[in-house]
Amino acid sequence: MIAVFKREFRDYMHNVVGWLFIAVLLLFISIMSAYYNFLGGSTDITPALSFGEFVLILMVPILCMRSMTEDRRNRTDMFYLSLPVKTGSVVLGKYLALLAVFAIPTGVLCLYPLIFSLYGEVSFAASYAFLFSFFLMGAGIIALCMFLSSLTDHLVVSAVVGVGVLVLLYLFPIVGSLLPESALASYIGFAVLALLLALLAYLTTRNLAVSFVTAAVLILALSAIFIWRPSALAGTFPLFAVSLSPFAQFEYMALYGLFDIRAIAVFLSYVVLFVFLTVQKADRKRYL
């Protein structure tokens, strides 16, 4: 794992993509910080970091596009499969390298509250808790984009799909909130989600039976709830949509100035789920 981490990290640092990611993220957050903090006379880093969400939506897919795709192109995926190590440790090495790249601008941003403290009162606990949440949110969407890069052989496709999925995740709570609070609306919303999950299962395993069973079980369970206790579904989809979107969770924290454990749990769930799925996808090549 350490060898893979070092190689990947070195690769990002010898490549324009790593530096581009760091530079763009720092540039835009710094511009917003200059606007809110220096021109606005505030010592709160939250508004500038909230803007950082949009930079992440654009830049994380570009950073992650090579992580798994490049191995398929270079045929180095076969090399990793032949190594006397578990596939999980290879994927983890790659993921940690991406996190290390993301940790660089986050580390620089950690200096901002110290700079603000030269000009006024700063709540360090709130600032660093929010920076920590920002890092965890980034860790979650990096895991998601790494998984997306394992689904295709093309760098551009990987990046475009990544941006598309992140934009969808960003809009998901808005779309959810537009749905009526009726049980039927939630039933339809969850059914669409079940189908998307089945599609994800197919993309990971390339097994039609697995994806069909996933869709069938979820929709049957959903239908059972809808028939016997429709009141249990009423109004749940908009709430679920907010829970599912890391961006909504992050904005909720920014809005209320809270360090929300539920949001942290959502971010960590993204990390665990998508690193796990990436391992399954990488190992899947053995079972063609």
């Binding site: 060898a3 270079n74 076969m78």
Partner: peptide, 27 residues
């Protein structure tokens, strides 16, 4: 020790860097 039909090489590394990485990856 396995050499697939297409050598699994990282084009942006030198042979020395690549082999050092492989040795470390093999433990």
């Amino acid at each position: 020790g396995y050499l697939p039909e297409i050598p699994p090489l990282f084009p942006d590394m030198t042979p020395y860097e690549y082999l050092t990485f492989v040795a470390e990856a093999k433990g």
